[in-house]
Computed example of a mutant assay.
Amino acid sequence: MPLDTSHLQAAIVDLDGTMVDTLGDFMVALTHMLDDLGLPHAERAFVERTIGKGSEHLLRSTLQHAAGEPPSQAMFEHAWQRYQQHYLAINGQHADVFPGVAEGLELLRAAGLRLACLTNKPLSFAQPLLAAKGLAGHFAFVFGGDSFERKKPDPLPLLKTCQALGTAPARTLMLGDSANDAQAARAAGCPVVLVTYGYNHGEPVQAVDADSFLDRLDQLALPRR
């Protein structure tokens, strides 16, 4: 049954795996970082199922995968510094906007919805990426994984974003690609729609508790106002 969107006032949109395919950026930055530390490279499939829970989680998991043991705090801090440097140097160069995203954002705005981007990616990575891909102008607010005390799947970032938008959670749609987005939305009281082409930690997204699924962002049925 299609989601009733007639009551919506705003939408919160995830970034990696929902709007932009950033797997290529992750692979390049991680490969350079692992080279700096003299560690073996991570496989693409491992990175794809590990992204989505924030860069710190990705980095710790990748270091453990490459070294065969959890990284020390000193190793993590050195790796984090190198990773940030490499990621910011190539941010967006190996990433592409998914088909239908720009059109979908236009439809959301044409329906009178205020938009916020909420990602677990650090804000210093997210803002330049949105700008580089021509998406920044759609959003009234952009929040990263370091904007609040906790990250998705905790509901706090969604509740704080709703406060910034000035809308009730029940009238604020969460658009994402993973269980992280859905769990946060359910706990916050937001309706949630997931795209089918994202990452979702290597698991089938259709198994996630969501209100609807989209093959393209511009397939969301919205009333024009």
Rank of each mutant, 00 (worst) to 15 (best):
V142T: 12
L123Q: 12
G144P: 07
D146H: 09
L107P: 00
F148A: 12
V101A: 07
P155Q: 10
K133R: 14
L130Y: 07
P153C: 10
D146K: 10
F125H: 10
K121F: 08
V101C: 08
K151N: 13
L159A: 11
Q127L: 14
A136Y: 05
K152D: 08
G137A: 05
V97T: 15
A131D: 13
L156P: 02
A131L: 07
G100K: 09
L107Y: 00
L159C: 08
K133I: 06
F139R: 01
Q127S: 09
F98N: 00
A132T: 08
A131H: 10
K133Q: 14
A164H: 15
P157K: 12
L130M: 10
K160P: 01
P128E: 11
P122N: 03
L118Q: 12
G100I: 04
R109K: 12
L158H: 06
F141T: 03
P99Y: 08
F98Y: 15
L156Q: 14
G112H: 02
G104Q: 00
L118R: 04
G112K: 01
A131E: 14
A110W: 08
F98C: 00
V101R: 04
K160M: 15
L158Q: 10
F98S: 00
L118N: 12
A111C: 04
D154I: 06
L118W: 05
S124W: 04
K152Q: 11
R150S: 15
A132Q: 14
K160I: 02
L115Y: 03
R114P: 05
D154L: 09
V101D: 11
L129A: 05
A116V: 09
G100L: 10
D96L: 07
F139T: 01
A164G: 07
V101N: 05
P128V: 06
K133H: 15
E106C: 05
F148E: 09
K160V: 04
G112W: 02
P128T: 04
F143L: 15
L156H: 11
G145F: 03
E103S: 15
R150F: 09
G137C: 03
A131Q: 14
L105I: 04
A110N: 07
G100M: 05
F98A: 00
L107A: 14
L108H: 02
A126C: 04
V142C: 06
L135T: 01
A136T: 00
R109C: 06
F125L: 05
C117F: 05
T161K: 07
E103L: 09
L108Y: 01
A136P: 00
A164M: 11
A111T: 02
G137R: 04
C162H: 03
T119I: 05
L107S: 13
H138M: 02
L135Y: 07
G137H: 12
P157S: 05
F139Q: 01
P155A: 11
F141P: 00
G134I: 03
K151L: 14
P157G: 04
G112M: 03
G145D: 02
A140V: 08
G137S: 10
P122H: 07
R114S: 15
A132I: 02
P155M: 09
A140K: 08
P155D: 12
H138Q: 05
T119G: 12
A132V: 02
A126I: 03
A136H: 09
L108V: 04
A126W: 01
G104T: 00
